[in-house]
Design a protein around this nucleic acid. Structure first.
Length: 629
DNA sequence: TGGTTGAAC
DNA sequence: AAGAGTTCAACCA
C-alpha cells in the first residue's frame, strides 16, 4: 500500500525513466525509498534511529507520518517538514554534484593514498589506556514516575504534556518515543497514559545516583540527570578489580540505593562507551574489547547515526554520499576527502576508527552562555496580545536571571510563525542588564518591528552573560563565598568556581571546559602545529579548511614544486604554501561560489552549513595532505 | 563584532 | 493538536 507520501516525495521527481537501464531504475527507486523513509523518520522524534529497539520502525514511521499529515488541514507542521525536507534534499543533491565534479578531475589513487596517510595519522592518536564507563539510567523519568505512582507499573505511559520526554518500555513497544508529540503517541498507542513531569523527583533521584558514582570516580562527569561518564581506571587498580566487575558493582549499588536500574558501556573513550551502554539496555552492560582490531570491526557496521553528534541531517547528507555505516567512510574515503570542506574528513576518520575523547572531567564551572524563556501558545495575531506576552516572558526571564544570578548584554527575541518557521532578532547594549525593566523595552522594540505576525511561540534570551556570583576583582573574590544559589536550575551541576580575574573583562578564565556531553573531542592528538586543539569534535569541521589555513611549519615539499592534488597540476618550485593553498582553494571552489549564488538550491550561503561542525581545529585538512608531496 | 540561522542533544 | 532550553558553528554585513 503506497502511502500518499511516497507519491508526493518519493518518485515524483523521477518521472522520465524510460531510457534508463533496469539497474539504474532499481537504483533510483531504492534511493527514493531511502529518502522517503528518512522523511518519515523525521516525524518520529529525535531519538528514533539512535536506539534501535523496535523491529519494524519503518511501518511505525509510516503511521506517524500519516497521522501527522491528517491532523488538521492544512497541517502547518507537516508542511514545514515537507519544506525542510525539500531544502535538505536539494542540499544533498548539491553535495552530490559537487562531489562528482571534484572527483572528475581528481587523481583518485593519490586521494586514497592521502586519505590513508591521514587515517594513519589519526590512528596514531588512539589511546586505549583508560577505562571509560558511560552509565545511563533506564527510562529514568518513567521509572521515577512509577515510584511516585506505583499503579503505573507495567503500563504503557509517557512522561510529559505536549511532548513525551520519556516513554515507558511498554509504550515503546508501540513505537512511542521521547520527543514525540503526545497526540501522535496516542495514535500509536491509544491507551497510553500521559503524566506530568516531576522535576524535583528526578533531581533527587539523580543526586542519589550521583553519590554512588562519585565513589568510583570523583571526577564523574554527569552529562544530564540520567547519564554520566566515569573513568574507573584508578578505581580498578586500587581495588584490583576488572572493569566488568566494577561496573556490575556500580549498577548493583545504584539499584540497591535507588531501586532504579541503569545500563552501562565500558570502552576506551566516551564515544564508544556511550554507544556500548545502549547495547544491553535496559539493565545491562557491555564491554568493548580494548583491542584495536575489535574496535574497528565494531565500527565497521555501525550506522553513522549512532555516533553522538551525528544527527538526522548529517545522516542524510552522508547517506547522499553513499555513507551509511562507519565502514562506508573508508570505502568512500576519496570522495570524503575531497568533500573535506563540508564534511570534515578527520572527524569522519575518527568515527571510522572509533577514536574519541577519553577525558572525564566534572562539569567544570558554570560558564553558561545564555538564559532564556520561551512559550508556545495558540496562534496570536493581535498586537497587544503579542506585546503582553513579551512582557510576561520578560518577567519570567528576570526571575530566572535572579535565581541563576546572571546579567547579560544581548537580548534575543525569538518567535515561531504559525508556519513553524523560526525567527530571531537580537540587540546588544553597552551594559549588563538583568531586570525586566531593562530587558522589556529592548524586547518590545525588537518585536514591534516584526508586526504584524501570526505566531505560535515567543521567547526572550539573554546572552553575553556575566556571572553575578563571581565577585572577583582580585583578592576580594576569595573572601566572599560564592553564593550557591544556582544548582537547582538546570542541567549542569557543579559548583561555581571562584575565578580571579583582575581586569574589567567579564570573561572568565576559560579553562578547557567544553566537554559538552555529547561532543566527542579528541584532545590527545594534535601533533603538528603545536596548537592545543582542545576540542575537536567528530562532527565535521567544514570551515575554512582551505584558503584560510595557516601554513603549517613542516612543509618541506617544494623541491619539485607542489602539485595540486585535485587537478594534478604542478605549480612550480617557487610556489609558496600559501600560493598552493590558494590554488587548491580555487580549484575546489571555483564554481562553488558563483554557482551557489545562482543556481544553488538552498538559499544563498546556506549550502555549507548543513553539516555541523564544532571547533574545527585548524589542522587536519587539505593542507596536511598536500604538504607531504 | 553583532546578528541570524540551523543542527544537535 | 508538534516543547523547552542550551550550545556551537557558519556566514554576512
Amino acid at each position: 500500500m503506497p502511502s500518499p507520501l511516497s507519491k508526493d516525495k518519493g518518485k515524483a521527481e523521477i518521472q522520465d525513466d524510460s531510457d534508463l537501464t533496469e539497474e539504474e531504475k532499481a537504483a533510483l527507486a531504492a534511493a527514493a525509498e531511502a529518502r522517503q523513509r528518512s522523511f518519515e523518520r523525521s516525524f518520529a522524534g529525535p531519538s528514533v534511529g539512535k536506539a534501535g529497539l523496535v523491529r519494524d520502525q519503518t511501518e511505525i514511521n509510516k503511521v506517524i507520518a500519516e497521522a501527522s499529515k491528517l491532523t488538521d488541514n492544512p497541517n502547518r507542521y507537516y508542511q514545514n517538514q515537507v519544506r525542510k525536507d525539500k531544502e535538505l534534499t536539494e542540499k544533498i543533491e548539491w553535495y552530490q554534484a559537487k562531489r562528482d565534479e571534484l572527483m572528475k578531475m581528481a587523481n583518485i589513487p593519490r586521494l586514497e593514498a592521502e586519505a590513508d596517510r591521514i587515517l594513519l595519522e589519526v590512528e596514531a592518536t588512539r589511546d586505549i589506556s583508560q577505562t571509560i564507563v558511560h552509565v545511563d539510567m533506564d527510562a529514568f523519568y518513567a521509572s521515577v514516575e512509577v515510584q511516585r505512582d506505583p499503579t503505573l507499573k507495567g503500563k504503557a505511559f509517557g512522561v510529559g504534556q505536549g511532548v513525551l520526554t520519556t516513554a515507558s518500555y511498554e509504550a515503546r513497544k508501540f513505537g512511542c518515543r521521547s520527543g514525540m508529540a503526545g497526540f501522535i503517541a496516542k495514535k500509536l498507542c491509544p491507551h497510553i497514559i500521559l503524566t506530568k513531569m516531576h522535576f524535583d523527583l528526578y533531581i533527587a533521584a539523580s543526586k542519589a545516583v550521583r553519590e554512588v558514582l562519585l565513589q568510583y570516580d570523583e571526577n564523574l562527569m554527569m552529562a544530564s540527570l540520567d547519564e554520566g561518564y566515569l573513568n574507573i581506571t584508578p578505581y580498578m587498580s586500587t581495588h584490583n578489580m576488572s572493569a566488568s566487575d566494577t561496573v556490575a558493582q556500580i549498577r548493583a549499588e545504584v539499584e540497591a540505593k535507588t531501586q532504579l536500574t541503569m545500563s552501562a558501556g565500558i570502552a576506551p573513550n566516551r564515544m564508544l562507551a556511550k554507544i556500548c551502554s545502549d547495547k544491553n539496555k535496559p539493565n545491562g552492560q557491555y564491554e568493548m574489547e580494548f583491542e584495536r582490531s575489535v574496535i574497528t570491526k565494531f565500527m565497521r557496521d555501525l550506522p553513522v547515526r549512532k555516533i553522538p553528534g551525528f544527527g538526522r541531517v548529517t545522516e542524510r547528507c552522508l547517506e547522499g554520499l553513499g555513507v551509511e555505516t562507519c565502514g562506508d567512510i573508508y570505502t568512500h574515503r576519496a570522495e570524503l576527502l575531497v568533500m573535506d570542506h563540508w564534511f570534515g574528513f578527520r572527524g569522519l576518520c575518527k568515527a571510522y576508527l572509533g577514536i574519541a575523547d577519553n577525558n572525564v572531567a566534572p562539569g567544570k564551572r558554570e560558564e553558561r552562555r545564555s538564559v532564556g524563556v520561551e512559550r508556545t501558545f495558540r496562534d496570536k495575531v493581535d498586537e497587544e496580545d503579542i506585546l503582553n506576552e513579551v512582557a510576561s516572558i520578560a518577567e519570567e526571564l528576570e526571575k530566572d536571571l535572579e535565581r541563576l544570578q546572571y546579567a547579560g548584554k544581548t537580548v534575543t527575541v525569538k518567535y515561531k510563525l504559525h508556519t513553524f518557521e523560526n525567527k530571531t532578532r537580537a540587540k546588544s547594549v553597552g551594559k549588563y542588564i538583568s531586570t525586566s525593566k531593562e530587558i522589556l523595552p529592548i524586547a518590545l522594540e525588537l518585536m514591534k518591528r516584526e508586526l504584524p505576525v501570526r505566531i505560535r511561540l515567543l521567547g526572550i534570551r539573554l546572552s553575553t552573560l556575566k556571572d553575578l556570583t563571581i565577585v572577583d576583582k582580585g583578592i576580594k573574590g576569595f573572601l566572599v563565598s560564592p553564593s550557591k544559589k544556582r544548582a537547582a536550575g538546570g542541567s549542569r551541576t557543579g559548583t561555581p568556581v571562584p575565578t580571579e580575574n583582575d581586569d574589567d573583562s567579564p570573561e572568565l578564565i576559560r579553562m578547557e571546559e567544553e566537554d559538552e556531553a555529547e561532543v566527542l573531542d579528541m584532545t590527545l592528538d594534535d601533533d603538528q602545529d603545536g596548537s592545543p586543539a582542545p576540542n575537536e569534535t567528530l562532527t565535521p569541521p567544514p570551515t575554512s579548511a582551505l584558503g584560510k589555513r595557516k601554513s603549517s611549519e613542516n612543509d618541506k615539499s617544494h623541491l619539485l614544486g607542489p602539485v595540486c592534488p585535485i587537478c594534478s597540476k604542478a605549480l612550480g618550485a617557487g610556489t609558496s604554501n600559501i600560493g598552493l593553498n590558494e590554488h587548491i582553494d580555487w580549484c575546489l571552489n571555483k564554481d562553488a561560489i558563483s554557482e551557489a549564488s545562482k543556481k544553488s538550491p538552498v538559499k544563498k550561503a546556506r549550502l555549507e552549513n548543513g553539516v555541523q561542525a564544532k571547533k574545527a581545529k585548524e589542522k587536519g585538512t587539505m593542507l596536511d595532505w598536500l604538504k607531504k608531496k
